[in-house]
Computed example of a mutant assay.
Amino acid sequence: MRIVIRYFFRGVRLILTPFMLAGPHLFKPRGIKRDPAEQQAVDQQTRQLALYHFPACPFCIKVRRAMQRLSLDVELRNAQHPGEHRQMLEQEGGRVKVPCLRIEAEDGSVRWLYESDDIIAYLDHRFGAGEAAQHSA
């Protein structure tokens, strides 16, 4: 019975994965419009961020959509397959769990933020429309 369940979910994943990968490209959220100088400042700040993700992970897709909505240019690091990104996530972050946002502070310290809702809350707080309104005032 266990093998039937395993193959059932593999089949479901095989069918849904192409749709999950194509969806964000077909239905992109509208990003925040900032003046060029402000967007350049945001881009400079996002250079200290990196998102470790799996391409078809629903929680990773949720975070990437939030990044699109906030017009953020965060480096994406695919940690699905063995390699340097997965190894760094495990060694420095402590575990292979995605999505994970690597936040490098100005003093060189690194913070690893797991959980999609926590990542989105962090990005909204730091780069959201409220933050943009504060800079323009």
Rank of each mutant, 00 (worst) to 15 (best):
Q48E: 01
M20P: 06
I15N: 06
P36V: 06
A41S: 12
Q48C: 02
W112I: 10
F127C: 00
V98C: 10
L49H: 03
H135A: 15
R95D: 05
A50N: 14
M67C: 14
R47V: 09
P58Q: 06
Y114I: 05
L101A: 07
F59D: 01
P29K: 01
A132R: 14
Q40M: 10
D43Y: 02
T46L: 03
A22S: 11
F127T: 03
I103V: 09
Q68S: 14
R30E: 15
L51S: 04
A137I: 11
S116Q: 07
H81E: 11
V4Y: 12
F9K: 01
M1Y: 10
Q87C: 02
D124L: 08
L76F: 10
R10T: 11
V63A: 13
E38W: 08
E75M: 12
L72Y: 00
T17M: 12
R77D: 04
E90L: 12
H25F: 12
L49P: 01
L16K: 08
P29H: 03
G93L: 04
D107K: 07
L76R: 05
R77V: 03
S71Y: 01
V74L: 05
A137N: 14
V63K: 02
P82V: 04
Q91H: 11
C60K: 02
F127L: 04
R2L: 09
L72P: 00
E38Q: 15
G108F: 09
L72T: 01
V63G: 09
E131T: 11
A66M: 00
R95H: 07
G31T: 02
P36C: 09
P82E: 07
R86V: 04
C100N: 04
N78M: 00
Q87G: 03
G94A: 05
R86M: 13
D118I: 08
D118Y: 06
C57D: 04
Q44T: 12
A79V: 00
R13C: 06
C57T: 03
D124K: 05
G31N: 04
M88P: 01
I103Y: 00
I5S: 08
E131K: 11
A56R: 07
E84Q: 15
I119G: 05
V42I: 12
G23L: 08
M67F: 05
I119Y: 07
M1S: 12
K33V: 14
A79I: 00
Q40T: 13
S109M: 07
R95N: 05
Q134I: 14
L123G: 07
P58A: 11
L51I: 02
H81P: 04
R6G: 01
Q91P: 08
Y52A: 01
A22E: 08
M20T: 11
P36L: 09
L123E: 07
T17Y: 14
G11W: 10
A22P: 07
T46P: 02
V42M: 05
I119T: 04
A56S: 13
M67N: 03
P29G: 00
G83Y: 01
D43N: 15
K28E: 12
S136K: 13
G11Y: 10
L101E: 03
I120W: 09
E131H: 09
R65M: 14
P24G: 04
Q40E: 14
H81N: 11
K97F: 11
R47N: 12
R13V: 10
